[in-house]
């Protein structure tokens, strides 16, 4: 724990919620979010899905709506700008500053430098896509770019998070629910290996244009580009056709080699995360619908407000929203590795 005592043991966890549309943002605010994160409808954010995200006008209105209800808006500009196209990313940062966003969530060093230089008073959070998994990396981003909060990659155990928080001076934010990257975030080119588009370059993992489902008899085959990702028996729960949740042949045996179709849920270990010195907890799912946002945000709101009593039961109640109907505590428990 921290030398100065129990940071986080007294302060409440900040609940950071996703919004892919203005309607989802209103749902998150109504359901009890402390902060909402969202992005512009282009390649500047890591959920660059068709029909999703905010136009500049929608963003301006959304920020006004959230602010009148004392909810913060964090704008994710967390892809890596493509060479020669920096203008689009710079404009996103300028818009965020102009509209009064409470922070920008950035991953690329060049963008961090730009934001620090042009908009020094705009709070900078380090995106999970920057994969800052240790004290030294975090110090670098704090020292060089004045980062105020780091979203930790989903590779650390609760013990490692506690150790880290005792060594750094900035806030940490961790994912507690939703899609689960099993690879270190921002360091994965599996999607572009198969589809030509990746989270880092295009803001998409397994882009919809490459996804196909076909029936083979009564089995459903999920395909990504030319690659078979999984084959589901009739009526069995399915998952996203992401490569890391696929089923493969390894030494002739069928295996979910990387991870089963599953979602992260740390609802049951919120007290541990709080004791580990975490400032904010984050729900994944900007691509998910209002119904998901409302259910998940309300559950976590309640869990934070009554911390330590019956979190596991509520986790089970959210299972219907998860991939394959399963949840895992992921890297938070060491045995996951």
């Amino acid at each position: 724990m921290r030398g100065d005592g129990l940071r986080g043991a007294t302060a409440s966890l900040e609940l950071v919620c996703p919004a892919g549309t203005p309607a989802a943002l209103r749902a998150a605010v109504t359901a009890g979010a402390d902060a909402v994160y969202c992005g512009f409808s282009d390649a500047t954010n890591a959920r660059n899905f068709p029909g999703l995200n905010f136009s500049p006008d929608e963003m301006r209105v959304a920020i006004e709506f959230a602010h009148t209800r004392a909810v913060k808006v964090l704008i994710a500009i967390n892809t890596y700008p493509q060479a020669g196209k920096l203008q689009l990313w710079h404009q996103a940062i300028d818009h965020a500053a102009e509209f009064g966003a409470d922070a920008v969530i950035l991953a690329d060093m060049g963008l961090l430098a730009y934001a620090a230089d042009r908009h020094p008073t705009l709070r900078r959070h380090l995106s999970v896509q920057a994969s800052a998994s240790n004290r030294e990396s975090i110090s670098f981003f704090v020292r060089e770019f004045g980062v105020k909060r780091v979203v930790l990659p989903r590779v650390l155990t609760v013990e490692e998070i506690a150790e880290l928080n005792s060594e750094i001076s900035v806030e940490t934010e961790v994912f507690v629910f939703g899609g689960l990257c099993v690879m270190a975030e921002g360091r994965c080119a599996l999607s572009s290996y198969v589809t030509g588009q990746s989270p880092n370059m295009n803001g998409v993992c397994s882009p919809a244009c490459a996804v196909g489902y076909e029936m083979r008899g009564d089995e459903m085959v999920s395909r990504l580009g030319d690659v078979t990702i999984d084959i589901y028996p009739a009526h069995a729960p399915a998952g996203y056709p992401t490569i890391c949740k696929g089923q493969y042949l390894v030494r002739g045996e069928r295996q979910y080699l990387f991870e089963e179709p599953t979602s992260l849920s740390a609802l049951g270990i919120l007290p541990h995360l709080q004791r580990a010195g975490v400032t904010a907890i984050k729900i994944e799912g900007r691509q998910r619908g209002k119904a998901y946002i409302t259910d998940v945000v309300a559950s976590f709101r309640q869990a934070i407000d009554t911390l330590g009593h019956g979190g596991e039961k509520r986790a089970a109640a959210l299972a219907h929203l998860t991939e394959g109907g399963q949840v895992t505590k992921g890297a938070y428990q060491k045995s996951w590795r």
Partner: peptide, 29 residues
């Protein structure tokens, strides 16, 4: 939630996923 319906196989989708996602996201918005 559309994804939840899909994960539980209550919805089956065939064809152009980009178009379906676009439709779904716009409607959800």
């Amino acid at each position: 939630d559309g994804d939840a319906l899909f994960f539980s196989r209550e919805l089956l989708i065939e064809g152009d996923m980009t178009a379906v996602l676009y439709l779904r996201n716009a409607i959800d918005g």
